[in-house]
Design a protein around this nucleic acid. Structure first.
Lengths: 355, 355
DNA sequence: TTGTACGCGTTATCAG
DNA sequence: CTGATAACGCGTACAA
């Protein structure tokens, strides 16, 4: 109601035909220019490259901007300059806590450099991912971060043609689209299984998330299998389970394993919060952990440390993956680098009382 | 300028494309038009309003689009039409699991209507929120969702002037910017405390997150106080704690309460995963729950149900908050509604073994 | 240091 | 149903 609009900027009455537009009179750079008594170009410079404008004019412009409440139109700016300050991120599931840390890392770094983030959710579907990336390219994002590393051929072609920098996050891909910041899921799973072997366990079950459309799960299974082979232990398919995400899956998995193969002495839950569900179920049923059965997890969720017993796990540098991804993306966008960087951030085995 | 394109073969086979701009050869609508033998305007129509184009031409255009891999430029489109298909969301913390459900809800609905989401993180700072909203407005977002309901005056002015639809999520605000989809934090906290009173508890402690810049915490405390007053119970400031987020805070809080005031017989943790930390600490120390002390929580995280004992809590319709927010935002954007909607999605007390 | 002319790629408008 | 043309608001490339 208190819109103090100076009469001078009522409209661009320069005689040209103006389109009837639904929205209010959006304030343009030209309006700021008029009020400051300079050209629009000078306003642009005062805003984007302040040092290329005399201090006096800079102040006049800033004043005018504040007075009429001008908010630059980045759509027009990006269109004109072919430069965008938005990056796109596709994760398999927004809701899943595990990705939140990475998103936060990306967001922090991007934001620190004046960039913004568009986030979308592929629901683990490569087709959906392709659609989302197309949409992001339509928005002319400056760069992309993808968590999945399995893509449709069309997606790969799209990326190649578009030339946008891309970082993949989910695993150290063999055939990356472009850049990669991650850790080796194979090595991490292998390391954990070998760790269990060293602790003396001999019948080590594996529980993963569904393998379809999830290269992480596949790789973790490969790592587990490799470790068993190295240790000279048999790989029993009956104790290799695939379960949907969620706590109840963990409960169910461990019960099934105890029934099916009483000889099982350790279970490696290679994903989600399955291990938590399993431990809680054991507590309910009075199954001793690690006395009767040992439990190991993947991904050091905060909770694992606080349970009784604490759960042994693989710590992944999720936040750092996000940060580094954003950093190398920005490097490439700024032309500071041309390389197809491949960063292995490693992992760490955290031994706790559950094994 | 290291353009890998040999100057000799810059031109295509069919047209005379004399554009030799370095960087990338962005394919434009005009290129599709040439290949399909129609005008650019017809391509635009074939893509956006297919029924307003003859089937034959529609097919020709679709073919051309596929053949040359055209990806529309939404920047140009939005600039021209003053219509954007991007919405902006500001949450206090991306990392916090509690917001993920809401984000997922928003994302799902928006995506189903061809919209995309830009997400940013205010770190609970109203100033930061103001900066982010300004940036979103610069991107000409079609609508905004804000979780916080405490804003700077400048933010309020900005929103009012810009005319973008806004939905606030965090609580049923008294003086909303525009639309609200939420639940009453006051009522929810009051209901839980009264529930505890009904169960026979008389010294009911309250643990909240820091009150600064967090209207939700403030309101929950008000609700708790109101309930105590109604029940004729004294409000003892010594058992009203403010703790930072995180499991360890819960551990610390409950230990302090048991020491400070042994008479405490119940603790209401009104935020984050504090209650989980508290319960785990009790288990470690052999404190009987609810025998020695009862524990109640706020927000029905999946885990609460699976702990032993299960933790009594207030269930909030977080996902639905996201969905409804997106829906009414889209309604307003599409001009289907002009009202300043206010939706109270309510809450539910979930009684479990911990109380 | 500041200004002018033009184009970025698309859509609204209106003519045919 | 289709096309020509003029904006949309800003930045690049020069000119002054």
């Amino acid at each position: 109601m208190d819109d103090g609009r100076p009469p001078g900027q009522a409209a661009g009455e320069d005689g040209r035909k103006r389109r009837a537009r639904p929205g209010e009179g959006a304030i343009r750079m030209r309006d700021v220019a008029e009020r400051a008594g300079v050209s629009a170009m000078t306003v642009s410079r005062a805003l984007n490259t302040p040092d290329r404008v005399s201090p006096a004019i800079r102040r006049r412009v800033e004043e005018a901007v504040g007075a009429i409440g001008y908010v630059p139109n980045r759509l027009a700016g990006s269109l004109s300059s072919s430069r965008s300050n938005v990056a796109g991120l596709v994760v398999p599931s927004i809701r899943n806590t595990l990705f939140s840390d990475t998103i936060q890392g990306i967001s922090d770094v991007l934001h620190g450099h004046g960039y913004h983030l568009m986030v979308a959710d592929s629901a683990y579907s490569p087709q959906e991912e392709e659609a989302l990336v197309t949409a992001f390219l339509a928005q002319r994002v400056a760069g992309l971060v993808l968590h999945n590393t399995t893509h449709t051929p069309a997606l790969r072609a799209l990326i190649r043609r578009s030339g946008v920098p891309v970082v993949e996050n989910g695993t150290l891909a063999d055939d990356p689209l472009d850049m990669v910041v991650s850790y080796s899921n194979v090595d991490a799973a292998r390391a954990m299984t070998l760790h269990l072997v060293r602790l003396g366990y001999r019948r080590i079950a594996l529980v993963t998330l569904p393998l379809a459309n999830n290269e992480r799960s596949l790789e973790r299974r490969r790592g587990h299998a490799a470790a068993l082979a190295e240790a000279g232990l048999p790989a029993d398919p009956r104790i290799m389970l695939e379960m949907p995400p969620g706590l109840p899956s963990g409960c169910e998995a461990i019960m099934r394993l105890l029934e099916i193969t009483p000889a099982v002495d350790a279970v490696f839950f290679a994903g989600d919060v399955l291990a938590v569900g399993a431990l809680l179920e054991c507590q309910r049923r009075g199954v001793a952990v690690p006395g009767r059965i040992a439990i190991a997890s993947f991904d050091d969720v905060d909770l694992l440390r606080h349970l009784n017993p604490g759960i042994t796990t693989v710590r992944l540098p999720r936040r750092e993956v996000g940060r580094r991804s954003a950093e190398i993306l920005l490097d490439r966008i700024a032309g500071r680098s041309q390389e197809r960087v491949r960063v292995d951030l490693g992992f760490e085995i955290i031994q706790r009382a559950s094994t």
